[in-house]
């Protein structure tokens, strides 16, 4: 999952730095992730993992770092399995 997230971030994040240089815990907003790019990333994650972000997870916190994205996506996948 980490790899897919990094690929999407490289493709859609429009970051001024290389994604390979970012630690999993690095602050993506500080690295230059814009609001609009985070929306593109959200849509890309939905397609890649066949999930739908619920409204309560559509916020900055969910996309604050690569680990945060991993946690959010895992959480949605788990909820999907349980349903």
């Amino acid at each position: 999952m980490n790899e897919t997230i990094r690929e999407l971030l490289a493709k859609l994040g429009n970051l001024p730095v290389a994604v390979t240089e970012l630690e999993d815990g690095a602050d993506l907003y500080a690295a230059g992730l814009s609001s609009f790019a985070s929306v593109q990333l959200m849509l890309g994650l939905e397609e890649a993992f066949d999930i739908e972000f619920p409204d309560n997870l559509l916020n900055r916190k969910s996309f604050a770092s690569i680990s945060a994205i991993e946690q959010t996506v895992s959480h949605i996948l788990k909820a999907k399995e349980a349903a």
């Binding site: 609001s35 929306v39 849509l43 559509l58 916020n59 900055r60």
Partner: peptide
């Protein structure tokens, strides 16, 4: 749209 929901949440959070 839904993307807008996220932009709106971001705007409020900040």
């Amino acid at each position: 749209g839904r993307a807008g929901k996220m932009l709106a949440n971001n705007q409020r959070d900040q």
